[in-house]
Amino acid sequence: MQSSIVKKVLMALSGIFLMFFLLQHLAINLTSLIPDDGKTFNAISHFMGYNPIVQFILQPILIFGVCFHFIMGLILEYQNRKARNKKYIYHNTNSSWISKNMIITGLVILAFLALHFYDFWIPEMEYKYINYEDSDPTKYFHELKEKFNGETYRTAIYCVSFILLGMHLNHGLSSSFQSVGVTPSRDRLLRKVANIYSFGISLGFIAIAVFHYFIH
């Protein structure tokens, strides 16, 4: 853990794990767009919410992955800032804004996660493990509608966050494969996959938020 390369590899591996999670999260949420009054979305959400493997094994792993990625990101940022003690008076750079500002997009995603947890995860935990309410397998779709329908500020914040998430993923995906020594980050195929993945994730989540904002 002392080595800078080990830290980068762990950062990349936790990032790749979170990218798989985002893909399945999007796939499940996209079912809320199926015109069946939320039947498919409710069925999958209920399964995910009450399956003991998902709840007690996969969920803690996911929470650990998220925390680890953020904490390691902050540690690396601190060390990197320490390594450059003085800035140039005349600054001229050849790097993209996204690649240089992963910490900014990362912190926005962290703030967004706090809002997202406040909106969906905390009420769910309260419902299941504090108030011990009887499970209602049809509530998920209505909850989703309630959060976005006509809620301009929330929908706008979610959409902006999804754009920044897409930017973070775009650099993160190609960068992580270089960090684990698999392929150079500018590899053409890897760049294509990173573009398609980041654009797809960003657009997919935005489409869901906007759809539920307009359609009651």
Partner: peptide, 23 residues
Amino acid sequence: GSCTNTGACEAHCPKDISLDNIM
């Protein structure tokens, strides 16, 4: 510091050393 794959090093290298070396 550690590499964050911004590519600035390769862009300014006077000998055009490729980023592939970091990989």
